Simulated assay, not measured.
Amino acid sequence: MTYRAAIVGTGGIAASHIAALRGRSDVTAAAAIDVADDRVHEFARNWEIPRTFTSLTDALASEDIDVIHLCTPPATHLPLAREALAGGVHVLLEKPPALSLAEHHELISAVDSSTATASVIFQHRFGSGATALRQLASTGKLGKPTVTTCDTQWYRDDAYYAVPWHGTWAAEGGGPTMGHGIHQFDLMLSVLGRWEQVSSMTARRTRPVETEDISAAVVRFASGALATVVNSVVSPRQESRLRFDFEFATIELVHLYGYDDSAWTFTPAPGHEELAETWGDLLTGRPSGHAAQFDDYYRALAAGRVPEVSARNALHTLEFAAAIYASAAQNRAVSCTELTSSSAVWRSMNPGRTARAAASA
């Protein structure tokens, strides 16, 4: 089957989607959609997309579309996803999938009521290094996970925040915790599994934003492992770094916005040198990125199975972001079991905003 895809939103990240679709025999880019007529026409012309629309409603009424790639600002994700899912159209959403836990649960409900699926772009899970690490860890050969560091130290200047929706609670849902570091800690969570408790702080140091520009957290996992997590957009020397310490090996990843096998370093503990050879045998050369995730995504659709990063699966990662905000706001450790509909961060990652809204109602 050849899937007919539509790109919804033609900002910067849309180019990553359409570039990753080029050359696939199982997908054709049938339409581009954007509220800005001049921008959508330019995008379609540059990428040789045959049809353009300024609303998803018009596109769904006029075109036979199987999948929408949702590349719009986060505040639009839920209403656009619901519209597509109601029509039986699959949805592939950029991160963050929703502004809040309440919205994400609405997304899951929309999927449950549809014949279609919703999946979230967490492309760092799909490089061969991450796949090899999960596979090797699952065998128990690495021993117990002990401590992990997960740092996203990026730099975004004031010009970046001149885009009206950047750095706002209402449109972006949060700062680097939601929009930048989420890639790294999603990869961390895919390796270490269920987290139990988060203690964190957030700060706004130099950027003209409503949200934080830094967050830092200490995490305890169900396994007993501990982790530190830093998310920053005020770091002039940019780097993304993950270090996983297990009983019998240390595995490190250093990159910026994507990685290949050369970005990983494997250091066995004394007496476990054979693990390095096993690690090398598991690497396949596949870099991280949208193309790697699309391989899994479209194979899943063809096989009739739910893609790996389903809306329900992605909830674990969004809950982690919510716990960072809740802990920072309440100045205490937050457990995963607290993130129910009575949580301060259920309807907004900014608990103060939620409280003010309730007071004025």
Rank of each mutant, 00 (worst) to 15 (best):
R347Q: 11
A291Y: 03
L282W: 12
S288N: 06
A300C: 12
E319K: 15
I251S: 03
C336K: 08
A263V: 01
N331H: 12
N350C: 12
H316A: 11
D296R: 06
D245M: 03
E277H: 04
F246M: 06
E273R: 11
L242V: 07
D281V: 09
D295G: 08
E277T: 12
I324A: 10
R299G: 08
A326S: 13
P287I: 13
A344E: 15
F246D: 05
A314N: 05
H255D: 15
D245F: 00
G258M: 06
T278Y: 00
H255Y: 07
L318A: 03
P351A: 12
E277N: 06
H255A: 11
R332L: 03
T265G: 07
W264P: 03
A276H: 05
L242E: 09
P287W: 07
L256R: 13
Q293G: 00
Q330M: 14
A355N: 04
D260C: 13
S288P: 00
L242K: 02
Y257C: 10
F248R: 15
E319W: 05
N331V: 07
L283R: 02
L242N: 09
Y257G: 11
Y298E: 12
T317I: 11
Y257T: 08
L282T: 13
T267K: 14
A269N: 06
Y297H: 15
G280L: 04
E252N: 00
N350M: 07
S262G: 10
Y298R: 05
A321T: 08
T250C: 11
A329Y: 02
A322R: 04
V334L: 01
G271N: 04
D295I: 07
